[in-house]
Each structure stands twice: as structure tokens, then as C-alpha cells.
Amino acid sequence: MSRIALITGATSGIGKATAEVFAKSGIDLILCGRRQEKLDEVSGTVSSQVRVTTLVFDVRDKGAVLAMIGSLPDEWKNIDILINNAGNAHGLGSLDEGDMEDWDAMIDGNVKGLLYVSKAVIPLMLERAKGHIVNISSIAGKQTYANGTVYCASKAAVEAVSEGMRLELTQHGIKVTNVAPGAVETEFSLVRFKGDESRAEKVYQGFDPLQAADIADAILYAVNAPARVTIADLTILASAQSAATVIYKKQV
């Protein structure tokens, strides 16, 4: 029987790329996101390879998370892999000038949303004494940078949650992997800069950034590792990047 993976934030970026690479490997998919039309697009690209079902909810909505995952038919509740990918970055500025609504969005999505989804899925894994949880953190969770304090704090929390999960769940046969990407060319900067395309594009100019598929390939490696192996913590940087805010760009 094929494995089942639940992926949050599956409509774009790393989540979408992970769905595509999992489908090629024969892993059935529960695709989760806020936009049904986008979920349908992703489903359409992979449904010829594996079984697919979709769940529409915002990870920040605790009631919706628990209700939608709880509504899965029994044949979909045997979740082998959970990819906690949904998250966001909003704004770039100092704490004294920061928008508190942006802070709420980041903490609610990156931290509380991850916890809500995990709360819904972990009991299903505990019943079967097996599973693999992959939390998508960030290099920003390891190295704080000015004007990104709250985002960095939210991703540092993901790092702590990953470690805590591993301490609690290893004895039950559940693996936990923390993946911390560096600069990945996705919708990330477009969201951070409130849809300002010119500003977002400048982030990735002058070097070859990571692509979502690069992170998806690493996630696939982690979940396909032998039973005796746990990839506990994985930091992935673009070759031109040496730290959170240190990227060697060519003059353009």
C-alpha cells in the first residue's frame, strides 16, 4: 500500500513542488490550502499518478483545521507523512515601526497554524506507531536579522517545536525533520512586500537562488531515508549564500 502525505500550503512554492515530487514517487496526497481553485490546479497535475484529495482551510483557523482534518474518510486518515509547509512573511521593518497585524499573521500562521495541524495529525500517527513530520523552518530561524525580528522569532519557534516533537515522538516510532531553507525564489518576497513585484524581484537578482524543487528534493530524501535514519535538521542555502543576510551577488 502506498504512503499518504498531508501537505499544507500546497497551492504554490515549496508545498506545490513537494506534491509534484511525491506524486512521482507514488505517494498519495492530501493537499491543503486556502484557495480551492489553486488546489484543483495542483491536483490536476498529479492526479494521473497518485490518489489525491483536497482540504480547504486556513491553518490560522483552529476550528477549521480540526474540522477539516477530522472529516477525512477513514481510508485517508492513515497519514504517513505530514509536511508543515504553510507560512508567511509580512513586512520588513523595525519593531517600533512594525505593523502589529503583520506580526499576528506571521505568529498565527508560522507557529500556531503548525501546532493546530500537528495537533490534528499526531494522534492518527500515534495510533499506528509510525509516521514522519517535516516542519519547514528557515535560515531566519537560526540567524536573526534586523527588520525581520518577528518573522525570525516565528521561525525560531518552528525550530524549537521541531526539537520538542522529536523528544516526544521518537519513542513512538515517529520521525521529525526540520528543514531550514535559505533564499528560495517563490511568492515569499511578493507576499512580504505586499505585492510589490519590482521590489520582490530585486531580492533574487544577481545570484542563482534556490528553487522550490530543490527543497522538495531534500524533503523526499528525508522521508525516503532508511528506517534506521532520521534527518533531524537540514539547512539548505543557495551556493551564493553564506548566512541569512549574506548573499554574494554579481553586479547587474
Rank of each mutant, 00 (worst) to 15 (best):
Q49F: 03
V229N: 07
G33I: 13
P181Q: 09
L234S: 02
T53K: 11
T11W: 06
R3C: 04
R192N: 01
L82H: 09
L95Q: 06
G9R: 01
K112L: 14
W76I: 10
I139L: 05
V21Y: 00
A212N: 01
A183Q: 09
R228D: 12
G70P: 05
V59C: 04
K250A: 15
D99K: 12
A238N: 08
Y145R: 15
T177M: 10
K112M: 15
T11C: 06
I215R: 04
Y204L: 06
V46I: 14
G206H: 11
G26A: 13
E168A: 12
Y116D: 06
D99T: 10
I7S: 07
I247S: 03
I139S: 00
K249M: 08
D104A: 09
A129S: 14
I83D: 11
K16R: 14
C152S: 10
L124A: 06
V150M: 06
V59S: 00
Y221R: 03
I231A: 09
L55F: 13
D58T: 13
K16P: 00
K130F: 15
A238V: 09
V176C: 03
G148S: 12
G141T: 06
F207L: 04
S154A: 00
A89Y: 10
I4F: 09
A23T: 08
V252H: 08
E127G: 03
I236S: 03
R51N: 14
S118C: 04
T144I: 13
A10G: 05
L124N: 02
K119N: 11
G93M: 10
L124T: 03
M165L: 14
S94N: 12
R228M: 13
D58S: 07
T230I: 11
E159V: 15
I215H: 07
N110W: 09
K16G: 01
D214E: 08
D217R: 06
A105N: 09
P181K: 05
A120L: 02
L66I: 04
R60N: 08
K175A: 02
Y204G: 01
L66R: 03
I247L: 14
N110K: 00
G44K: 11
A89H: 10
E127Q: 14
I7K: 03
V111I: 15
F193I: 07
K119Y: 06
D28I: 11
V111W: 02
A160M: 13
L95T: 11
P181L: 00
V158A: 04
M165P: 00
K142S: 03
E101V: 12
K38V: 04
D208Y: 07
V158D: 07
V252L: 13
T54P: 02
I215P: 01
P73W: 08
